[in-house]
Amino acid sequence: MRQVWRLMMLVATVMCAGVAARADDVQQAAVDQSFEAVKTAAAAAGLTEVIQIDHARLAAAEGVTMPPARVQLFSDPALNAVVLSDNIRAGLDLPFRVLSFDDRGTSALSYTSSAFLAQRHGLTTASALVDFDDRLNEVLSQLTVTSPRAVSTKGVEPDFAVLEIKSKYGVDVSVERLKQAVTAQSDTIWFGDIDFQAEAASQNVTLRPARLLLFGGPAPGGVAMAEFPAIGLDAFCQKLLVYEGEDGNAVLIFNDIAALARLRYGRSIEPHDLLNQRLFATFRGAVE
């Protein structure tokens, strides 16, 4: 009788695992479908693809399980130049980005609106904000698979969730030292960087030096996103903006992961604080 009971339990366990695996496959397929729909719509709108990152698959390759989540960044250099002319710090939230992710079994899309940029960075150029949403809506209005939703702006004030470090070096030297520090970490992937000053020059717009560095850690990022997949819009790919300050030395700004988790979920966990501490230590060690 015990052997029969054990056999029944084994069969039930295998069946439950099979059901869970099929559910995971369905959720991943739904996220992939919405991701591809965004990618197609962005291309149709004439936006330039910058990077795409598959959070869950990268994390899985490092042995970390998290819900399906994929982010993509696409750009309009002319619009970027106008926004950055208003406030260079807005580069932390550029270029356009959309996150496709599984939200408790439902495929979801998240994006950052001009309202978020305006409140976080004190933007005042109304025409640029209108153009920002118009260009983004060219993409989002084409989507039929999943209804996109903007990140909440409730409680977002100037410099909300922005962490800052002042460098003792100029922008170029700071970027090189930061890249060396980041790539020296065995669990981190370097995705690239965007030279906003050069991009603006191509549009006949003069900007102070400013570069956006893009990198991420699949394993620690996957742990931090396991219960909080929506934060993948702003983290892992981690964004670090390095721009020229008033004294000629670089200023570094980056996202407070714990604060962004609280914005989206009303709470944060220890891994978010630990990642903030790790980023601070890495960046300060490179530029101070």
Rank of each mutant, 00 (worst) to 15 (best):
G18H: 13
P158N: 07
N87S: 05
S107L: 00
R135L: 08
V151T: 11
E157P: 04
T282R: 15
H121C: 04
E227G: 01
G222T: 12
S114P: 09
R262M: 12
N249E: 05
V98N: 02
Q203N: 12
P148N: 12
T125V: 10
K239C: 04
C16P: 10
V130T: 15
S75N: 04
V19R: 08
S107V: 10
E36D: 12
M66A: 06
H272E: 01
L178I: 06
R2V: 03
V38E: 13
D247H: 04
M8Q: 14
A224F: 01
K39F: 06
R267V: 15
A21M: 12
Q72R: 11
V173Q: 09
P158H: 04
L99E: 14
T40G: 01
A78F: 03
L92Q: 00
H272R: 01
L136V: 11
A90S: 05
Q33V: 10
L94T: 01
A41K: 06
L207M: 05
N137S: 14
A126H: 05
Y169P: 08
Y169F: 14
P218A: 02
D172E: 14
R2D: 00
V171F: 14
P158G: 15
G221C: 02
T144K: 05
A258D: 11
D172Y: 11
F132S: 01
V11A: 13
R208M: 09
T188Q: 14
L260Y: 08
C16D: 06
S202H: 09
F280W: 14
F101Q: 13
L263V: 09
V242S: 07
E270N: 04
M225T: 07
H55R: 08
L260E: 12
M9D: 05
L274N: 10
L117C: 07
Y243F: 06
M225V: 01
G221T: 14
E62M: 09
S100R: 09
T282S: 03
V242M: 00
F35P: 08
S174L: 04
P229R: 06
V171L: 03
N255E: 06
I269C: 10
L92W: 04
E62W: 10
